[in-house]
């Protein structure tokens, strides 16, 4: 490696090698665990099913399913937690010191008065950090998906909308890692101290994740599953229920009153009740599992957009030499 790339490598090699070693350990562990899981599924001719309960999963051996879930869910949750926390870890240990430590220790004055200019110096170090963040987060996100997908959305296991899965896999996980890195870099540049920058990036990434998790369901309209008359409702299966049940009246309007026709001793049955109140059908609002990708791309766009804004800010501040 030559020039500024050598410097970037020399300064980041401890991080790169530590990260690579941890990632390799994860790969080995997941490969072993997943092989175990797959051999169990094969050996017992286990029928994988997507759904909430025994009614939805008729034909699946529940005892075997429980064993599969209890054997693997803790591991997937641990891996998912690591993957979901990776953007914060990258922001703190890679982003914040990337410029923050240089400014704090004054070594930026040494680096920027050599033959290599600011642009190449920054491009090399930020580029290496971006490459490692993207690779690392993509591998971890893929591992989560690889291990989880054979037993995904099954009974009381892990569903696509659980934080351990949604935040830990897919393109949004990679985009979030990129955002964490950029946020850490910007914090280090603007605060000029590594430790406070670490605190800020922790707050920012965790805060943004919290906001996204809170408002995720508000971005797109759920799908209303309609059942005509008193016909039984469609099973939830792998969908994410909004918890909104209701009735449809004669004019086709949705009435979100779940308990308009309660069950009970001495009460009229559903058909009678609906007829009395003028309802012609029932509905249940859910996000089908295909919405996983819609949510993923929305959050990917948010993370990448914010990362781009912060990157532009970093470039402007560096160019104007507003540092010192």
């Amino acid at each position: 490696m030559k020039g500024s790339l050598w410097l970037a490598w020399r300064q980041q090699r401890a991080l790169v090698l530590t990260g690579a070693a941890l990632l390799l350990a994860c790969v080995a562990w997941v490969a072993f665990q997943r092989a175990d899981m797959m051999s169990f599924i094969d050996a017992h001719h286990f029928k994988v099913c997507k759904g909430w309960d025994s009614e939805e999963c008729a034909g699946t051996d529940l005892e075997q399913a429980q064993r599969l879930l209890s054997d693997n869910d803790d591991g997937i949750v641990a891996l998912g937690t690591l993957s979901a926390a990776l953007p914060v870890i990258i922001g703190i240990f890679w982003g914040a010191p990337l410029l923050g430590r240089e400014l704090e220790s004054g070594t930026w004055k040494l680096a920027l008065t050599q033959g290599v200019g600011l642009r190449r110096w920054f491009t090399a170090r930020f580029g290496l950090a971006v490459l490692c963040s993207v690779l690392g987060s993509a591998v971890l996100a893929a591992l989560v998906a690889w291990w989880w997908s054979p037993i995904s959305n099954m009974l009381d296991g892990l569903y696509w909308h659980d934080g351990y899965i949604f935040n830990a896999t897919g393109p949004a996980a990679v985009a979030c890692a990129l955002f964490g890195l950029t946020a850490g870099t910007a914090a280090g540049l603007l605060i000029r101290r590594t430790l406070p920058a670490m605190g800020v990036v922790l707050g920012v990434v965790v805060g943004l994740r919290f906001l996204l998790n809170t408002f995720r369901s508000s971005w797109i309209e759920p799908t209303a599953r309609i059942s005509q008359g008193d016909a039984p409702r469609e099973n939830v299966r792998s969908a994410w229920s909004t918890g909104e049940f209701g009735f449809i009246d004669g004019a086709g309007r949705k009435r979100p009153i779940a308990d308009a026709c309660p069950w009970g001793e001495g009460l009229p049955d559903l058909k009678t009740c609906m007829a009395q109140k003028g309802f012609v059908g029932r509905y249940h609002k859910v996000y089908p599992s295909s919405d996983f990708w819609v949510f993923q791309w929305i959050e990917t766009a948010i993370f990448l957009g914010l990362a781009a804004v912060l990157f532009a800010l970093i470039c402007v501040v560096l160019r104007r030499r507003a540092v010192i």
Partner: peptide, 26 residues
């Protein structure tokens, strides 16, 4: 060439690394 007041050098580099830094960047 500039020697700043706090004489900044990378504390984790060896002396050899530091000279290589000069060689790589000039």
């Amino acid at each position: 060439a500039f020697l700043a007041q706090d004489k900044p050098l990378y504390p984790r580099f060896t002396v050899g690394d530091t000279l290589r830094f000069g060689r790589e960047l000039n």
